[in-house]
Design a protein around this nucleic acid. Sequence first.
DNA 1: TATTGTTATACTCTATAACTATA
DNA 2: TATAGTTATAGAGTATAACAATA
Lengths: 167, 167
Amino acid sequence: MPRSRTMNTSPVPVWGLGFLLSQVGAHAAARFAERLVPLNLTPPHVGVLGVIKHADGLSQQALGEMLCIFPSRLVGLLDELEERGLVERRDSPTDRRAHALYLTQAGRDALEKIGLIARELQDALCAALNKSEREQLAAFLTRIAAQQGLTSGVHPGYRKLGGAEPK
Amino acid sequence: MPRSRTMNTSPVPVWGLGFLLSQVGAHAAARFAERLVPLNLTPPHVGVLGVIKHADGLSQQALGEMLCIFPSRLVGLLDELEERGLVERRDSPTDRRAHALYLTQAGRDALEKIGLIARELQDALCAALNKSEREQLAAFLTRIAAQQGLTSGVHPGYRKLGGAEPK
DNA sequence: TATTGTTATACTCTATAACTATA
DNA sequence: TATAGTTATAGAGTATAACAATA
């Protein structure tokens, strides 16, 4: 009886594709967080920056809904980003209760660096795959994400509660 | 200029394959945890059960090293599994300080149910892919996991600190 | 003196609730 | 009366440190 080509040398059972997705995904997330440390940022910070970049002037309320982050949590994240000079809270022109969020130049620069980090990480993670395999993998994951109702750019790890989607 | 087939309808930027892996992986993990709730178990519990099944009689020390879990944390996890009647702490025959860990019949039954849950989840997660695509995806992820030094069955989420591998 | 498992404590992250000021 | 943002508080999960029994 022939052994399978990918022999299991581990002391523990294999839980299938679900486990594999989760395992590799957690690894990717950990490596990303690691590479953000020199920038003094965390993945949720990056999520916030990314949304503001593409929706300049939005309110904290709107931002929280997009990322499924509680308003109270956003306060801290934005405080940190503002301290570091990456984000500005301006007064909303239409509602004196609300803030309008903007990236500073430093914020845009940081996003550039983050994009570079993400590309380097992608290369490192996919070292085992050639170009066409990477494209296939991306296509598979994109289809899964779409079918599962995941929103592009919204990480379940930002979420409040069980990973609900933004409205 | 033709639009790509997988149009990005999101309010936020796409961070590439690393983000996609992490996003889909976190989703898979959340859905798995969700399906474990009726069994009154969490993913770390499952990791522990899986290792004990394949290394009956091992010590807490050894178990912790395999899963990269701190001994003090293991105490709580094992307390819960013992309370639920899934695991037994017997006296080690060779070292009166140590415990030898064993699954009960209920523990083995629970692992059966968990296996079923994992297979159902896999089907749900991969609804967008046909059989051969799932196999390709599994092959890609297995290669990535191997190249990245991940140990089969050891989830980075169990880990102490930055996702180090077991010795 | 080192190691096994335990307990007690602290720390990090996130959610909940209460509050202020506007609308 | 409801909403935007804030503050204060609490909870979950995990790491660190100190400890008793045994090696």
